[in-house]
Each structure stands twice: as C-alpha cells, then as structure tokens.
Computed example of a mutant assay.
Amino acid sequence: MKSRIINIPKIVDKEGRGNLSVIEKDVLPYPVKRVYYLYDVPSGSSRGGHAHKEQLEFLIAVSGSFDVVLDDGNEKQKVTLNKPDKGLLIATNTWRELENFSSGSVCVVLSSGEFDETDYIRKYEDFIK
C-alpha cells in the first residue's frame, strides 16, 4: 500500500449552516483503534520523526494547515494538508515529518492500532536499514 490522499465525504448544509464530514464504513481501509490530535505546535517546530512497522495512520488538518514530508527510503514527497475533507493515509514503513504548522492548526490522527512502542522506528538510520 502506498501513502495517499483520501477524500472524506462532505455533507454541505443547504441552509448555509456549515459543512459536516463523516468517516465511517469503508472510508478507511482499517478499523480505527486510536484517535489523537496535535495542536498548539509552536511556529518552526516539527512533529513526527518516525515510521511504523505495522500501524497505519490517517492525518487530517481539521483546522489550519501543515506539511507532511514522507520518505519511503527511496524518494521523499511533501504533502500539504489544509482541508478538513481530505486526509493523508500513511502506509507502513514510511518515515514522516510534520512541519510548517500554521497558527491555530489542529492535526487529527486516526490510527489502526493502540500505542505500541515496539511498532515505532524512531531513528532514521534504523529506518534506512
């Protein structure tokens, strides 16, 4: 599986009261086991800096924007997330760095597994091996 953008179904309110997006059924290729979110990330800071052996993660910029730099060991790709109806599915064994957070940005992560330290690759040198 490759990392990719997934469109989240969006319901537009005909009375102009705002939009609603829903993640259910087969939007994601796995059942969600953990949800967490990043916020109040200081300007110039980065997050991530790891890969997962088994766990899949789906990142959504529910507010603001940020960049995700993906590295599969052969090539790097930068993806900007800035729409709450689009998310980035990150494949296993993909190094990720989150950077360039806008003021007030919130990143929600829907994970295929509960926290398990043994699933993390935290050193880039180990990842490249």
Rank of each mutant, 00 (worst) to 15 (best):
Glu99Phe: 05
Thr80His: 10
Asp13Gln: 12
Asn74Ala: 09
Lys25Val: 07
Tyr120Ala: 04
Leu88Gly: 09
Ile90Gln: 14
Asp126Tyr: 01
Leu59Ser: 00
Val27Cys: 01
Lys83Thr: 08
Glu54Arg: 15
Gly73Asp: 06
Leu56Gln: 09
Tyr120Met: 05
Ser112Thr: 03
Phe58Cys: 10
Leu81Ala: 10
Ser102Tyr: 01
Leu81Arg: 07
Gly87Val: 14
Ile23Trp: 08
Lys123Gly: 00
Val62Asn: 07
Ser46Glu: 13
Ile128Val: 13
Lys78Ala: 12
Met1Gln: 11
Ser105Trp: 02
Asn82Tyr: 06
Phe66Glu: 08
Val79Ala: 04
Tyr39Gln: 07
Arg47Thr: 11
Phe115Ala: 12
Tyr124Pro: 08
Glu97His: 03
Ser45Pro: 06
Arg34Cys: 06
Leu38Trp: 04
Trp95His: 09
Phe127Val: 04
Pro9Glu: 06
Val27Ser: 00
Cys107Leu: 14
Ile6Asp: 08
Pro84Arg: 10
Ser65Arg: 15
Val109Gly: 04
Ser112Glu: 05
Leu20Thr: 15
Phe66Ser: 07
Ile11Gln: 11
Val27Asp: 00
Val109Ala: 14
Lys25Pro: 02
Ile90Trp: 11
Asp13Lys: 13
Glu125Asn: 02
Val32Asn: 01
Val106Arg: 13
Asp26Gly: 02
Lys123Thr: 06
Lys76Asn: 07
Ile23Pro: 04
Asp116Leu: 12
Asp119Gln: 04
Leu59Ile: 00
Val68Arg: 02
Phe66Val: 03
Tyr39Ile: 00
Ser65Glu: 14
Asp67Pro: 04
Leu56Glu: 06
Ser111Gly: 14
Met1Arg: 11
Thr118Leu: 00
Thr92Ala: 13
Tyr120Lys: 03
Pro31Ile: 01
His52Leu: 11
Asn82Glu: 10
Asn100Cys: 06
Gly113Gln: 14
Ile5Asp: 04
Ser102Gln: 05
Ile60Gly: 10
Ser112Phe: 09
Val22Ile: 15
Pro84Phe: 15
Ser21Glu: 10
Val27Glu: 00
Tyr124Thr: 05
Ala51Tyr: 01
Lys2Gly: 01
Gly87Gln: 12
Val106Ser: 05
Ser102Cys: 07
Arg34Trp: 00
Asp13Trp: 12
Lys33Gln: 10
Asp67Cys: 06
Asp71Trp: 05
Asp71His: 05
Val27Leu: 01
Leu38Asn: 14
Gln55Pro: 00
Thr80Leu: 15
Glu75Phe: 05
Gly16His: 04
Asn100Val: 01
His52Asn: 08
Ile6Gly: 09
Lys83Leu: 13
Arg47Tyr: 03
Ser45Glu: 15
Leu38Pro: 01
Asp72Pro: 12
Lys10Trp: 02
Asp67Gly: 05
Phe115Pro: 09
Ile121Lys: 09
Gly18Ile: 06
Lys25Ala: 14
Arg122Tyr: 01
Leu59Gly: 00
Leu81His: 07
Val22Trp: 13
Leu81Pro: 09
Lys14Ala: 15
Asp67Phe: 03
Met1Phe: 11
Glu15Met: 14
Pro29Ser: 07
Ala51Gly: 06
Lys83Cys: 12
Glu15Asp: 13
Ser103Ala: 13
Gln55Asp: 02
Glu114Gly: 11
Lys25Gln: 12
Glu75Gly: 09
Val108Leu: 15
Ser43Gly: 08
Glu117Cys: 02
Arg96Val: 13
